[in-house]
């Protein structure tokens, strides 16, 4: 699993009478354990590519393979299962469930996966400790800073050891110190757990953490280099 292969990926959006190109014949291969940054200006297609790879959106044409799975052909149910078991998401706006505590937010995904109560509680506490939130397990998102919320979101994304983490502008709402902490954490998880990371950003500081930088513009890949 985890090797991502995209072939001739196309996606367009209709905005009024205008057709906007989101992805324009994208060919892309990402190997297991890579730490990739997608960079480019707004509207370049970063988020569209992440959504397509993560099975949140379907391409108009082309193929997406994740290991042996043909992602673009999956029905809603198997697609949800694939996200549940193989992909972790980190969003720009954290997207935590406001009525759940930090620990419950992390546990929630494991509950859906069917992990037993005691095991998921232990795993949630361990991962919160690993992301530096020990002692804050019972706090609700509103009681946490932006950086702390994003750490909870990261904990939620990686607690089940997914093959792939997709992070869409994860530092956009963070101050520079929190952003540096978060990227350090991503780097550590990538190295320690060999989780593949694909991060979309237009923040130069974030790009500096990447081992591979893919530049996009107008739905096309215009640059792809190892760092």
């Amino acid at each position: 699993m985890s090797a991502i292969r995209c072939r001739q990926l196309c996606k367009t959006f209709k905005q009024g009478d205008e057709i906007i190109t989101g992805l324009d014949h994208i060919d892309l291969d990402i190997e297991t354990g890579e730490f990739v940054c997608l960079s480019g200006p707004s509207g370049s297609g970063k988020t569209t590519l992440l959504n397509a790879i993560g099975g949140l959106d379907t391409p108009d044409s082309g193929e997406i393979h994740m290991g042996d799975i043909r992602v673009d052909k999956l029905e809603r149910g198997p697609l949800a299962d694939m996200r549940l078991h193989h992909i972790g998401f980190v969003f720009q706006a954290y997207n935590l469930i406001p009525v759940l505590s930090a620990q419950e937010n992390v546990e929630f995904v494991m509950e859906v996966q069917g992990v037993p109560v005691a095991e998921r509680a232990r795993k949630a506490l361990d991962i919160l400790k690993e992301v530096g939130l020990e002692g804050m397990e019972d706090r609700r998102p509103a009681q946490l800073s932006g950086g702390q919320q994003q750490r909870v979101a990261v904990a939620r994304a990686i607690v089940s050891h997914p093959d792939l983490v997709l992070a869409d502008e994860p530092t956009a709402n963070l101050d520079s110190v929190s952003a540096a902490h978060l990227m350090g954490l991503f780097q550590e998880l990538n190295e320690n757990h060999r989780i593949t990371f694909i991060i979309s950003t237009h923040d130069k500081r974030v790009m500096s953490y990447a081992k591979r930088l893919i530049k996009m513009r107008d739905g096309k890949i215009i640059g792809d280099e190892a760092q």
Binding site: L56, F89, N95, I97, V112
Partner: peptide
């Protein structure tokens, strides 16, 4: 709705 979208992204079946 956004919250439900997040949950679906996390892998919850509709």
């Amino acid at each position: 709705t956004r919250e439900f979208g997040t949950m679906m992204a996390l892998g919850l079946q509709p």
